[in-house]
Write a protein that binds this DNA or RNA. Structure first.
Length: 206
DNA sequence: ACCCAGGAATTGT
DNA sequence: ACAATTCATGGG
């Protein structure tokens, strides 16, 4: 067993609640992880239900209905910036039934992705994250800047046609598809190992 | 003041 | 059709 495998043996993937997952990653576009956590904390405090556990105060994650009822301005107050519009659109899709996350859990990767991409604010990367972390599509291979760097560094044979850190939608589909084919049904696990490896090499602060 | 961050929509060519 | 540009927000 290599040092790398021993060091990381024990990594697991979430099977997160799909609604919580899609709202969370909708907040994640073009920002950093500490900021995402702040947004979600603010959303819970503002739209979630207050509960007391062991004398401590918590707020549950807001329902799609509650977010749908809120104005875009109220959502923006939580620090979402331009993402507020997308969060509201996701809530709308869930409430009016256009997006049936539970049904997508049983769908094929391609079909689930196609449905997710119809929603305003959901692109390739976020759709892949939602599928990997909550819809049991373990072959999904999300590519963010860190993964793109990792692929450029460790899988140069794929970057013959110069992939930068920013991928066009066309490049994203090509690269993610290639990695899905390369790693197979559990490509998402490989993605996670790469992600955490890159994050640990950089200085982590979250 | 500039660049970056678990991107995606919009506009320009 | 593809490639630039824009979009809020805080930290380095």
């Amino acid at each position: 067993m290599s040092t790398l495998v021993r060091q990381y043996a024990g990594l697991r993937l979430m099977r997160q609640d799909p609604e919580q997952c899609i709202f969370s990653f909708t907040c994640a576009s073009n920002t950093n992880i500490p900021m995402i956590r702040t947004m979600l904390r603010n959303l819970a405090r503002k739209f979630g239900q207050r509960v007391i556990v062991d004398g401590r105060e918590f707020f549950t994650f807001p329902t799609a209905k509650k977010i749908h009822e809120a104005t875009a301005a109220d959502i923006r107050t939580c620090g979402l910036g331009y993402r507020a519009k997308a969060v509201k659109a996701v809530a709308e899709s869930i409430v009016n039934g256009n997006l049936d996350l539970d049904a997508l859990r049983k769908a094929r990767y391609e079909d689930a992705k196609m449905e997710l991409l119809k929603v305003y604010g959901i692109g390739n990367k976020i759709a892949d994250c939602v599928m990997l972390f909550s819809l049991e599509k373990l072959g999904a291979f999300p590519i963010d800047v860190w993964i793109a760097r990792s692929l450029a560094k460790h899988y140069k044979f794929l970057s013959d046609s110069k992939f930068g850190e920013k991928l066009s939608p066309l490049q994203y589909v090509a690269l993610s598809g290639a990695m899905r084919a390369y790693f197979g049904d559990y490509a998402g696990y490989a993605q996670q190992y790469l992600f955490y490896h890159m994050r640990q090499q950089a200085h982590r602060k979250w």
